[in-house]
């Protein structure tokens, strides 16, 4: 029978009350927390005790404040277990069934609980917001994918803030939340964007032998995107022709044939 285990579980501050429930259930099953990290947690087997856990967010504490902090909790029987993300602290107390559940609450009035929740940092969307700005400046399909993802992440952030506002100081049974799709969505967006940038074709036109004047060329465009006409120099010492730049945006149905006009001097 194994005596240690590591679980892969991403901590979500918006549902910290559900995480409390998970830790308490694991403790009842004989798994006691030894280390808590944002993406994984370590447990050891010990069936001799059942704990009730407490999760607290306090921001960055000085050495003096941290000492006072642990003393206040230790005075009520709370054992410090772990710290993660610089502002989250995990405590536990052995369960005594003769005591009421209120003994296992660290926040016993609403104003102090709300004050704690105001210190909880919450953000998913910032990583993608720059992509949204980039899309506005350069409307290409790859950046569009990032831009849409940024909007979805922002919506997820708002939902998480709403959930945090409704969270209670008591452990709450876990349930699935739509914003748990955020990580797979982010991975999909990055993969899709890289694919789009990779498969987006460059269209070439050989200008040798062309007469001066207005010319045109036809390209079959496979993906809606923002295309720009670029000039690549001839090899050797041949004089470079002048080409007025032309840009074509194809947001109509695809694949389609677009005719691009340019002036060749």
């Amino acid at each position: 029978m194994r005596t240690k285990k590591t679980t892969l579980h991403v901590f979500d501050p918006a549902t910290f009350d559900e995480e409390l429930f998970r830790l308490n259930v694991l403790s009842e099953e004989g798994w006691q927390l030894t280390e808590y990290h944002s993406l994984y947690q370590k447990f050891r087997r010990d069936d001799s005790v059942v704990y009730r856990y407490a999760l607290d967010c306090q921001g960055s504490l000085s050495v003096h404040d941290f000492r006072r902090y642990r003393e206040e909790y230790a005075a009520q029987g709370w054992e410090f277990v772990s710290q993660f993300r610089e502002c989250w602290y995990v405590f536990r107390k052995p369960l005594d069934l003769s005591l009421p559940e209120e003994e296992y609450l660290i926040y016993t009035d609403e104003p102090s609980f709300q004050a704690m929740k105001r210190t909880v940092p919450l953000s998913l969307s910032t990583a993608f917001l720059f992509s949204f700005v980039n899309f506005l400046l350069t409307p290409e399909l790859g950046w569009l994918i990032y831009g849409v993802t940024a909007i979805v992440m922002l919506a997820f952030d708002l939902m998480r803030r709403r959930r945090l506002k409704r969270s209670r100081p008591v452990p709450t049974p876990r349930r699935w939340h739509i914003w748990q799709l955020a990580f797979p969505l982010a991975v999909l967006a990055i993969a899709l964007s890289i694919l789009v940038f990779h498969v987006r074709a460059d269209y070439t036109l050989d200008l040798r032998g062309l007469q001066a004047g207005v010319q045109s060329a036809e390209f079959t465009v496979k993906l809606p995107d923002f295309y720009g006409l670029e000039f690549y120099p001839y090899p050797g010492d041949a004089p470079r022709p002048q080409i007025s730049p032309v840009q074509a945006i194809t947001w109509s149905k695809w694949p389609c044939v677009r005719k691009i006009y340019f002036t060749f001097r």
Binding site: D56, Q58, A75, Y107, M116
Partner: peptide, 29 residues
Amino acid sequence: HGYAVMQRAAALSGGKVRIGSGTMYGATG
């Protein structure tokens, strides 16, 4: 000290008021 405050508060209120550790730490700070 903090624990004595918590105990006296419970005694004065007839057991109705319980000050949790988080509430105590935040309030004293």
